[in-house]
């Protein structure tokens, strides 16, 4: 399996941002250790990139692979949603 590439759009280092990052790292370290790459992008510093990815809400996690594109909005507290949205796509066959 290739490296899972994920983009997380946040707005500054707010509590919501910290929570989202912590929640994701915890989840991915449990499920996808060493197999993912998470890029954190601040919408205030990179609005052009946010425009290109049509980001409305923050935090937004964008998963963009060759055949599927999904986005997850929120502080990533509902981990089962994230699992459903991403992990099953990527690893569904292996696990």
């Amino acid at each position: 399996m290739s490296l899972l590439s994920l983009k997380l759009y946040v707005s500054r280092r707010t509590l919501k941002t910290e929570q989202a990052i912590a929640n994701l790292e915890k989840l991915f370290n449990e499920q996808l250790k060493g197999k993912y790459e998470l890029t954190v992008i601040d919408v205030r510093e990179n609005p052009e990139q946010a425009e290109a990815d049509k980001v409305l809400a923050t935090p937004t996690l964008i998963h963009d692979s060759s055949d599927v594109r999904r986005r997850i909005i929120g502080d990533m507290s509902d981990t089962s949603r994230i699992l459903n949205a991403i992990l099953n796509d990527e690893t569904g066959g292996d696990r």
Binding site: V43, E51, V55, T58, I72, G74, M76, A85
Partner: peptide
């Protein structure tokens, strides 16, 4: 699109 917890519209405001 999936929703997982609390969010804001800072993405839109920044754009």
């Amino acid at each position: 699109t999936f929703i997982s917890g609390d969010y804001d519209l800072d993405g839109l405001i920044a754009r």
